[in-house]
């Protein structure tokens, strides 16, 4: 089996010398349905370097969520391996944080308690009470939810709930953030807000992010690399390295944008 090196990662001497934080090798996932087996994705090779933000783009149903869930260890792969810092993993790991499209807050806990829930689990390093409190406060500050610590999820707007979910994940200080369309359920203004917030957090914490989106602008705004998936079965079709420093202006990347759109429309018409 050949090393799954993308062309872009060899461009960067720094990345080429270190082991990638995340490496996915020849990954395949099939679902057994009543109509037979459905290959959600196949032959996925992907590497994410420490500090890199990779955006996964693709048409609906091309297997983005399935890929992310498999990388997160929430479901098993049928073939291939997922490596975290060179170590093969098959289950969810404490140093990986996942944010879903829905906030998934536990309704009987307040915002602060929801964040604490993720921190107090056995697999997390144990914290003293003051440490726990300061971690929660820091996470709440980070997402700008001050004053809502004691609110229950049903008292929050969609954007606030998603912030709380992000805070719950960030408070665990994950090395790798896996985001599955975290903002797609939000209205345009709130989404822009959240993108700015995420951009700031990424810059502050040097977080490594693998993010699924079907918003090209979001990918261009946040990503260091944009990966386009094709479907039936889901596979990586093309990728673009985006070198422009952040924060970026949306209109400054028209060329890449057009290229991605072009590729996307080609992908949509590919024979399956």
């Amino acid at each position: 089996m050949n090393q799954p090196l993308t062309t872009s990662s060899t461009d960067n001497p720094l990345q080429a010398t270190s082991i990638p934080l995340l490496a996915v090798q020849n990954l395949q996932k099939r679902y057994k349905t009543r109509q037979g087996t459905l290959t959600a994705f196949d032959g996925i090779d992907l590497q994410v370097q420490t500090g890199e933000v990779v955006c996964l783009l693709g048409a609906s149903g091309c297997g983005k969520s399935s890929l992310l869930a498999t990388i997160a260890g929430l479901q098993s792969a049928d073939r291939g391996e997922v490596y975290l810092q060179g170590r093969s993993v098959r289950q969810s790991q404490p140093q990986v944080g996942v944010v879903f499209q829905d906030p998934c807050l536990l309704p009987w806990l307040t915002v602060a308690q929801n964040i604490a829930f993720g921190l107090k689990l056995k697999h997390m390093p144990s914290l003293t009470r003051p440490e726990l409190r300061s971690r929660i406060a820091a996470a709440i500050d980070q997402v700008g939810l001050q004053g809502f610590e004691q609110s229950y999820p049903h008292q929050l707007s969609g954007g606030m709930a998603q912030r709380a979910a992000l805070a719950r994940t960030l408070a665990r200080r994950p090395q790798l953030l896996l985001l599955d369309e975290p903002f797609s359920a939000l209205d345009a203004i709130t989404r822009l807000d959240m993108q700015t917030l995420l951009l700031r957090i990424i810059a502050q914490q040097q977080t490594t992010v693998l993010m699924v989106t079907h918003d090209i602008d979001e990918a261009l705004l946040l990503g260091d690399r944009v990966v386009l998936m094709a479907r039936h079965p889901g596979r990586i079709y093309q990728e673009w390295q985006i070198t422009q420093p952040k924060p970026r202006l949306a209109h400054s990347l028209t060329e890449t944008r057009c290229a991605i759109l072009d590729a996307l429309s080609t992908v949509m018409t590919l024979p399956t």
Partner: peptide, 21 residues
């Protein structure tokens, strides 16, 4: 089932999932 998925993504043990979710 989303809560169970969340619990798994946070690496909760079986007992933690039962008692806290």
């Amino acid at each position: 089932p989303r809560w169970l998925l969340l619990s798994r993504s946070l690496c909760a043990t079986r007992w933690e999932t039962i008692s806290q979710v």
